[in-house]
């Protein structure tokens, strides 16, 4: 397995606050990598840096051997990086099917016929369990469904790497189970590499091949899930948060 994405010495500050501080990371082809850490650790900022919403102050990110420097979000998406948002952003005044179609249009542009895109979109909605919502407006569905809709839209862009930002927040145990299955399915059936942020520890430990831990903008640890759970620094980072 080769390296799919790699970041070296990534730093980003806003005003006086350093949100991401000298972070090195990489994800191998086909891996499921969990990104954890207390609130404000810089996880979402890292996602925003990868997808080109912000550009890093220093450091460089390369994807499949190409630098992402200076690329706009839509160019990065077309290279094969898709994402969901922590605070969901579906296209509220469009139907669920139309939401998924946007991903396909973003990827294929005018090179495929609208009918073919609709077929593919329906297929993706089937897999993500949204088939029954096709004609519903995105503003009218539940938060959980919106999160899933974002996953579907991201999948529609035909990514090599997908960044999931807290897709399990608010789910109950059996739903978490389903979501974990879905994540594995995305990796196995679609051949998509996954980097995901999650606060649901059980799920991330069970489903990830490897875990990266961030705290206050820095990477404090990475390794196999069981090694991470046992690590003193990680425990401190989380305990420190619950004290505050």
């Amino acid at each position: 397995m080769g390296i799919l994405i790699e970041g070296t010495q990534i730093t980003k500050s806003f005003g006086g606050v350093t949100a991401v501080n000298g972070v090195d990371f990489h994800v191998l082809q086909g891996e499921i990598v969990g990104l954890i850490g207390p609130n404000g650790a810089g996880k979402t900022t890292l996602f925003n840096l990868i997808t080109g919403l912000f550009s890093p102050d220093t450091g460089e990110i390369t994807f499949a051997g190409k630098t992402l420097k200076g690329l706009k979000p839509f160019e990065i998406c077309r290279l094969g990086i898709a994402r969901t948002f922590q605070i969901v952003r579906p296209f509220l005044k469009m139907t669920c099917l139309e939401n998924v179609l946007i991903g396909l249009i973003g990827k294929e542009g005018q090179t495929s016929r609208p009918q073919a895109k609709i077929r593919k979109a329906r297929n993706i909605m089937q897999i993500t369990g949204l088939a029954h919502l096709e004609t519903r407006m995105a503003k009218d569905i539940t938060l959980i469904e919106k999160k899933r809709l974002e996953v579907a839209r991201a999948l529609a862009t035909g990514p090599k790497l997908i960044l999931l930002d807290e897709v399990m927040a608010g789910l109950n145990l059996s739903e978490i189970q389903q979501a974990s299955e879905l994540i594995k399915k995305i990796r196995n059936d679609f051949n998509v590499t996954i980097l995901w942020i999650e606060h649901v520890m059980g799920a991330i430990m069970k489903t990830s091949d490897r875990v990266i831990v961030m705290d206050q903008g820095k990477k404090i640890m990475e390794g196999k899930p069981d090694a991470v759970v046992a690590d003193q620094r990680v425990i401190e980072a989380y305990l420190g948060q619950s004290d505050a």
């Binding site: 997808t51 919403l53 706009k72 979000p73 839509f74 998406c77 077309r78 898709a82 994402r83 948002f85 952003r89 579906p90 296209f91 509220l92 005044k93 469009m94 139309e98 179609l101 946007i102 991903g103 249009i105 973003g106 990827k107 005018q110 609208p114 895109k117 839209r153 991201a154 529609a156 862009t157």
Partner: peptide, 25 residues
Amino acid sequence: HSEWGLTMRAVLNDEIAASASGINT
């Protein structure tokens, strides 16, 4: 009512999400 119209509405709905979905907004 074409794909163009769809992308226009996506841009109107949420420019950041459209851009993250590969649309050159």
